[in-house]
Amino acid sequence: MNTPSANILCFGAAHFDRTLQCTGRFVPAASNPVRTLHRKPGGVARNIAVHLRLLGNNIAMLSAVGDDGDGEHVIAALSEIGIDTRRMMKLEGKHTAGYTAVLDETGELALGMMDAEVYDLLTIDRLAPQLTNLKAWPWWMVDANLPVETISWLADNKGNTKLCAATVSPSKAVRFRPVLDELDLLITNQAEASILTGIEIKEIAQAKTAIQLLRGKGIPDVVITLGATGVVSSSSQSGTAFWSPLATRLRDVNGAGDAFYSGFLSAFSKPHAQMDDAVANGLAMASLTAETNGTTVWNLSQTTVAERAAQAEKKPLD
């Protein structure tokens, strides 16, 4: 029997990522010759939405782009894979956000530049007229690129919709602090969880303490990812547990965190979902993405994900 699709509305970043590499020694405050390694759509909410769609869910995207070619391309690429883009805002006189990474001659990051000003225009005034339509979606995945006032407004007006937070970065994670007690799901990494809790997180025991604090603030389901160390999850349903990463033929870790979120939410948003199944699904997606060049596994199959998820092992921490 086929598992029913979930209906999830994703709010947040959808832009282009560009990676350039110096062809000679990187010299600060100078003109450096470079070659373009890649230019592709990116953004946390966009990355999560794409994998959710490839996993068979009904997905819509709400974001802002400029009235430029990049904005048209971002919207078209989402639409082509069946993501509902009717809530994408194309803002006149603005330019589409973008992240540019400049690598030095060895491949290490020399300079990273993020232009995200257009997301500041995802204001309450722009979203309020759509509230009835937005609340028709039973799941909201909101990334921290939205203004803090908009995040708080969404939390206050979610009604029966499940609000799932993606913290994006340590500098932006603070935007969820005012609404922790209104979140239904929080998936965050150790650096972002430290910002939200004030607890240094370098080992599993510290992650457990942080996750208990976050659940004590009213969040029923919390996951803290620890990079190559693994994942700590907690819910009233399944307790607190540690999960090791799955065996992976490592190729490119970019996008693995967003892929974990997609795999987790795809499973967790289904009827009668179990936390353990969702974590296993998230680990499978992170593993498959790390074995792929780029941030997206375009040839996904439910069978491949299920087979990888079956390898997940849980170690209770209660």
Results as ranks from 00 to 15, higher is better:
residue 71 G to E: 00
residue 286 A to C: 07
residue 252 D to I: 13
residue 94 K to I: 11
residue 232 V to W: 05
residue 142 V to E: 12
residue 165 A to R: 00
residue 54 L to R: 08
residue 11 F to H: 10
residue 289 T to H: 08
residue 273 A to Q: 09
residue 286 A to V: 03
residue 316 P to R: 13
residue 30 A to P: 10
residue 279 V to R: 00
residue 311 Q to T: 15
residue 33 P to H: 14
residue 202 K to Y: 11
residue 230 G to Q: 15
residue 173 A to G: 02
residue 146 L to W: 02
residue 227 G to T: 13
residue 7 N to D: 10
residue 285 M to A: 07
residue 284 A to N: 01
residue 165 A to S: 05
residue 17 D to L: 04
residue 298 W to N: 05
residue 207 A to Q: 01
residue 189 N to T: 01
residue 245 P to G: 11
residue 96 T to N: 15
residue 174 V to D: 08
residue 99 Y to M: 10
residue 304 T to I: 12
residue 190 Q to H: 15
residue 182 E to K: 14
residue 217 K to W: 00
residue 176 F to L: 05
residue 129 P to S: 13
residue 71 G to R: 01
residue 2 N to Y: 07
residue 99 Y to W: 14
residue 69 G to D: 14
residue 272 H to T: 06
residue 196 L to W: 06
residue 74 V to K: 03
residue 61 M to D: 03
residue 315 K to M: 07
residue 208 K to Y: 07
residue 273 A to M: 09
residue 255 G to V: 02
residue 259 A to G: 02
residue 195 I to P: 00
residue 93 G to I: 06
residue 251 R to D: 03
residue 177 R to I: 10
residue 169 S to A: 15
residue 55 L to W: 06
residue 261 Y to Q: 07
residue 17 D to C: 05
residue 247 A to K: 13
residue 163 L to P: 00
residue 247 A to L: 11
residue 232 V to Q: 09
residue 265 L to P: 04
residue 123 T to K: 04
residue 74 V to A: 05
residue 196 L to C: 14
residue 256 A to E: 05
residue 180 L to M: 10
residue 86 R to T: 12
residue 272 H to L: 10
residue 13 A to C: 07
residue 109 L to P: 03
residue 151 I to H: 07
residue 303 T to R: 09
residue 50 V to A: 04
residue 21 Q to S: 08
residue 78 L to V: 03
residue 269 S to L: 11
residue 96 T to H: 14
residue 270 K to C: 08
residue 106 T to I: 04
residue 312 A to W: 02
residue 195 I to L: 03
residue 21 Q to T: 06
residue 130 Q to A: 15
residue 72 E to H: 05
residue 282 G to N: 01
residue 123 T to C: 04
residue 249 R to I: 06
residue 111 L to N: 11
residue 159 G to T: 06
residue 259 A to I: 00
residue 156 D to H: 01
residue 262 S to W: 00
residue 269 S to W: 04
residue 285 M to I: 07
residue 118 V to A: 12
residue 220 P to H: 11
residue 194 S to G: 13
residue 199 I to Y: 02
